[in-house]
Every structure is written in C-alpha cells, then in structure tokens.
C-alpha cells in the first residue's frame, strides 16, 4: 500500500539529487535543469499532501476539498514561477556565452569577491 511517506521519500530523494547537481556541475545549463528538478520534487510533495489530507480521519467534507484545492493552486503558481525562471535564466546564459564563449560558471566569476 502506497502511503504519503512513499511520496515524501521520493520527493526528498529527487530534491537531494537536484541539490547535488547544483553543487557538482559547473555547466550553467545543467545547474538550471537541476533547479527545475528541485522545484518539481517540491511540487510532488505538495500534490501528495493535497491528496492525503491528514487533518480528518473519515470522509472528505466540502471544506476539505477546498483546502486540498489550495495545494493544486500552489503547484500551479510554482510552475508559473519556474517557467519565468527558465526564460530569464536562458537569456542570461545566452548573454554569458556571447560575452565569454563559455557557460562554465568557474570562468564567469566577475562578481566573486
């Protein structure tokens, strides 16, 4: 039987893998994709919590459904933010490549102290 914990563990694994990708890789595009992975892991946790409302044992009343819908709206807005982030991030990467001929973030260290 699949419980909420299964989804939470999967979400934690995906989030940790995304965080490792951000730390390990030096390619700006792969870092962007790892961030997307982390956002989607969080989305999975939110949807799982919306599906398993744990504040009431029996039945799903009308107000529970309304509260469960909150999670859906939350995920919807996270997806919007992620799409905006990818658009701006790719623009920055293209501009970086145009100026430095590389997207290795070790080389783009102008703002490092």
């Amino acid at each position: 039987m699949i419980s909420l914990n299964h989804y939470l563990i999967l979400s934690a694994v995906l989030f940790s893998v995304g965080a490792l990708g951000v730390l390990l890789r030096r390619n700006a595009l792969i870092i962007l994709m790892s961030v997307e992975l982390m956002l989607n892991a969080a989305n999975l946790a939110i949807v799982a919590f919306a599906r398993y409302p744990f504040f009431r044992e029996v039945g799903l009343a009308a107000e529970d459904l309304a509260v469960a819908g909150n999670g859906m709206v939350f995920v919807f807005l996270v997806m919007t933010v992620a799409a905006a982030e990818v658009g701006v991030g790719l623009a920055i990467i293209i501009n970086l490549y145009r100026q430095r001929q590389t997207i290795n973030i070790e080389i783009a260290n102008l703002l490092q102290g």
Binding site: S3, R51, Y52, P53, F54, E57, G59, L60, F76
Partner: peptide, 18 residues
C-alpha cells in the same frame, strides 16, 4: 502512520475545480 488515501471526489484535481 499518515492516514490512508481517501476516495477522491469526482471533481478533485480536475480543470474545473482548479
């Protein structure tokens, strides 16, 4: 143990309810 999955209403997660 977190509660078991409850039967979802018909409109749960549909485009209309969202």
């Amino acid at each position: 143990v977190y509660p078991k999955k409850l039967p979802a209403p018909e409109e749960f997660g549909s485009a209309a309810s969202l």
